[in-house]
Structure formats: structure tokens, C-alpha cells
Amino acid sequence: MAIFSLWVINKAGGLIYQRNFADGLAQLTSNEYLVLAGTLHGIHAITSRLSPTGSSSGAQVIEGETFKMTILLTATGTKFVLLTSLAEATADSVLQRVYEAYADAVMKNPFHTPEMPIRSEGFDTRITSLIGTGQP
């Protein structure tokens, strides 16, 4: 039961927010995170076109042996990705609340440029109270 990491990917596939919460995953450089986010964006685009029965929302959960990633795709194309342990049952509701915090603290902030990296203190605070303290 652990939440490892949160990513926010913009509609072009760029990583605009990344934060780690618990140890357990390999530590990567920020450039590697950017590449992974772009790759996930591509995989998600493929999965959304694979459906044999018309349109699909794309991948929602990707599971590995030691962790799973839960993906929330919003109507505007922004993706919220939560990396958690396999037993974590609250991932979906956490993502919904992250989306809410994003709508409040990022989109209503006049100093945020859409599609650009999120540097909003208010968002950090909301995420901290939602998930817990990140690593320094």
C-alpha cells in the first residue's frame, strides 16, 4: 500500500509535473522521466486505437509484478498518472482528487501558462495534503 509517484502529462505528451512520494521505484533523472512520459503518451495513443468495438478511452491501468500505473485521461487530453503498489485500491479516487486540485490550483492561477510545467505552490500544497509529503 504505497503511492510512489505522480505524473501529469500534457496533451502533447510532455511531462509537466513529476513528484515522488515513497521509495520503491528506481530513481531516474528528470530527462529519463521526460522520455518515459513521452513513451507512455505514445503507448496510450496506440491502446486507444486498438479497440475492436469503436472508440476507446485507452489504457487505464498498466500492471507490473511490483507496481501498477493508473492513468486518468481528462476530456482536454491531459493525463494524470499515479504509480502505486499493486495492493493500492484508492488510486482512482486519488487521481480524481488530483484532477480537482489541478483544476483549482493550476488552471485558476493567472501565473500558470497552459501546457507548460506546473510551478504552482498552491498545487504542491494541495498534493502534499492529498498524498503526503514528498521527498526533499
Binding site: D104, A105, N109, P110, F111, H112, S120, F123
Partner: peptide, 13 residues
């Protein structure tokens, strides 16, 4: 919902 960036911290909306 406003977070003023650090470089303009004297600003008060």
C-alpha cells in the same frame, strides 16, 4: 487559487 511566482513576491492581487 493564485500562487504568485517567487520572482514577483511583492505582488498582491
Amino acid at each position: 487559487h493564485i500562487s504568485v511566482p517567487k520572482d514577483m513576491n511583492q505582488l498582491s492581487c
